[in-house]
């Protein structure tokens, strides 16, 4: 299992692996938003939690079609499906690799983006915590979407249409944690709900992902 993770990380980090694209997108968004809504610190501080979560979500979305598409094209996916590893584990590892290469860097640079958007000081801890707890759900849900569309020609655009509605609860609770944190309110409830969705998604969605992957491979 660790062999698959190491291979995927190695592929992502080598030339053409697409590592850093999501990060660059996140940065560009943090630059474009003030250009669009104006430089007023008050306005930016108020919308910063939502923008940061939305940016992380869209950056995750960008790299979803890479999760299975390349392995499908070169036949690795067929070979993995016939290898002595459960497909449920394969999709979980794939989601983990996606999280490590796309979401984790976003979590790490998010305080910098918060700085650009005048995020109130009280909110930084909650920003990092909510992204850490929430992004695994984004990766797992995204892996499900990628597995659904793996053999399709118009997969890239379709996957956004399928996955974005599934991201709604995570976005709502994640942004709410940061927004409440920024106002100095208690964040326990949205944080608990956010973690609940993440744990539920991580526990159950790999079975659905493996199921649709099997359907797509036959």
């Amino acid at each position: 299992m660790s062999a698959l993770l190491i291979r995927d990380l190695r592929l992502a980090l080598r030339a053409g692996g697409g590592f850093g694209l999501g990060l660059a997108f996140f940065l560009i968004l943090a630059v474009l938003v003030p250009l669009g809504v104006g430089p007023d610190p008050g306005t930016l501080a108020r919308i910063a939690p939502g923008i940061l979560w939305l940016g992380a979500l869209l950056a995750c979305l960008l790299s979803l079609d890479r999760i299975f598409a390349l392995d499908f094209e070169d036949g690795s996916l067929d070979l993995l499906a016939t290898a002595p590893v459960p497909l449920e584990a394969v999709v979980t590892i794939k989601a983990l690799a996606h999280w490590l290469t796309t979401a984790l860097p976003l979590v790490l640079v998010s305080p910098l983006m918060g700085l650009l958007l005048f995020l109130p000081a009280e909110a930084y801890l909650w920003l990092i915590l909510s992204l850490t707890l929430g992004t695994p759900a984004l990766s797992v849900i995204g892996t499900f979407g990628a597995a659904l569309t793996v053999g399709l020609k118009r997969g890239g655009l379709l996957v956004s249409l399928l996955v974005l509605p599934l991201y709604i609860p995570t976005l709502v609770f994640g942004a709410e944690v940061v927004a409440r944190g920024a106002q100095g309110l208690t964040v326990a409830t949205p944080l608990a709900l956010l973690s609940g969705i993440t744990f539920g998604a991580v526990a159950l969605l790999p079975f659905a992902s493996a199921m649709v992957l099997r359907i797509n491979l036959r």
């Binding site: 499900f144 509605p165 599934l166 709604i168 609860p169 709502v172 609770f173 709410e176 409830t189 949205p190 709900l193 969705i197 969605l205 659905a208």
Partner: peptide, 15 residues
């Protein structure tokens, strides 16, 4: 899967 998330989204919207 969508049904589960649609239900979650409904509670998220209320919240």
């Amino acid at each position: 899967v969508g049904s589960v998330f649609a239900l979650l989204s409904r509670y998220a919207a209320i919240f």
